[in-house]
Every structure is written in structure tokens, then in C-alpha cells.
């Protein structure tokens, strides 16, 4: 009898300790960690196989990801002027998806450029970013809009890493729609 009581008490103490020591900055105990933790490399992990010690690597120079079109206009004034003059959207009428363009614009552009493209986004209203132009005050073409999303201009940074080529063109179409509405 006494032995059993000790066993119960010992178990109780162990489980109370297990439940009570919950440090928020530590993970819980894992059951069979070999099934939880990936043997394969996970995104953003550390990796000794590469010189910079990271799993995520930049694409090899000169390679093109599937479905992507290389962009040859350089990040210079000449590149900007050339793109403004020559570059045209590859999207056919059927591929233009105005709803998608609008939702992407809502994610990536609205905070500064504003819903209507008048340069009155939330960050402008809160005076975090200033001097965002109204689209109607700028002489822009589809080529120049794409170029600016790709390389950035002045204080606007490049948004190439956040968007695929097709998504950029959808946004370009939406910006043009907004600009036409503003010019009316």
C-alpha cells in the first residue's frame, strides 16, 4: 500500500512539474522528434553545404526561372527612358484580370499611392512617407510603370522580389486605369 502511494505521489509530482514549467520562450517537449523535425532542408534554414551558410540561395547567374521573362532594361535613366518608349505589356486582352490587378495593387501599392492613385495612402496621411505623386501629374506609360516596379525610382524601392512578371503587368494595367480615371 505504502509503496503504491509513493508511486502515485512521484508521478503526480512529475506531471505537476511538467505542466507548471511553461516558459513562453521555449518550445514544448516533442514526442518522437525524429518524426517532427525535417531531415530535408527547410526554407530559411542554416546549411553548412553553402559558403554563406544558408538554405536559401540566389538563382545561379544566367539562369531564368520557369515562366519568367528576363528584364533587360538597366537601372539607369537611359534604361527608364527606353522602357518608357518601347516596352509594351505582353498580356493579351484575355489575360488581363482587373480584379487581380486591383487586389495586388491593394497589397503592394495602396499604403503609399492611395486607393485612387492620388498619392494619399495611409503612410502619407500619417506623414511617414511624403511627396508621393498623384498619377495624373506624371507622364507615365505602361513601360515606365513596369520599369519603376522592377527597379524602383528615387525613394521607391524595387518590388521585383515580391511580384512575378505577370503580377507586375496586372498592376501596371490597374495603375493605368486609375490614372485614366484621375485624368477625367
Amino acid at each position: 500500500m505504502k509503496n503504491n502511494i509513493f508511486k502515485i505521489v512521484a508521478l503526480l509530482v512529475v506531471s505537476v512539474v511538467l505542466t507548471s514549467c511553461s516558459d513562453k520562450t521555449k518550445r514544448q517537449v516533442q514526442f518522437m522528434p525524429d518524426m517532427y523535425v525535417s531531415v530535408a532542408y527547410e526554407p530559411y534554414g542554416e546549411n553548412t553545404a553553402f559558403a554563406n551558410g544558408m538554405d536559401s540561395q540566389s538563382p545561379v547567374e544566367g539562369t531564368i526561372a520557369r515562366g519568367q521573362v528576363p528584364y533587360d532594361y538597366p537601372n539607369t535613366n537611359e534604361g527608364y527612358e527606353a522602357a518608357k518608349k518601347e516596352l509594351k505589356s505582353p498580356l493579351s486582352v484575355h489575360e488581363v484580370n482587373s480584379a487581380r490587378g486591383k487586389s495586388l495593387y491593394g497589397i503592394y501599392c495602396v499604403v503609399c499611392h492611395g486607393k485612387k492613385g492620388d498619392g494619399q495612402g495611409d503612410l502619407v496621411k500619417r506623414e511617414k512617407f511624403l511627396g508621393i505623386p498623384n498619377y495624373k501629374d506624371r507622364d507615365i506609360t505602361e513601360g515606365s510603370i513596369y520599369h519603376v516596379i522592377m527597379h524602383g525610382r528615387n525613394l521607391m524601392g524595387s518590388h521585383a522580389s515580391q511580384l512575378t512578371g505577370e503580377e507586375r503587368w496586372q498592376i501596371v494595367k490597374h495603375v493605368q486605369t486609375l490614372r485614366n480615371d484621375l485624368l477625367k
Binding site: 506531471s15 511538467l18 505542466t19 514544448q28 517532427y36
Partner: peptide
């Protein structure tokens, strides 16, 4: 309670 919290990281805040 102890058994059910194994592997559950609700509230984890490193």
C-alpha cells in the same frame, strides 16, 4: 494536461 501539451506550442513567444 501534461500529456496533451506535448508538441503543442500554443502561446510560444521566443
Amino acid at each position: 494536461t501534461a500529456l496533451l501539451s506535448i508538441g503543442v506550442d500554443e502561446g510560444y513567444q521566443p
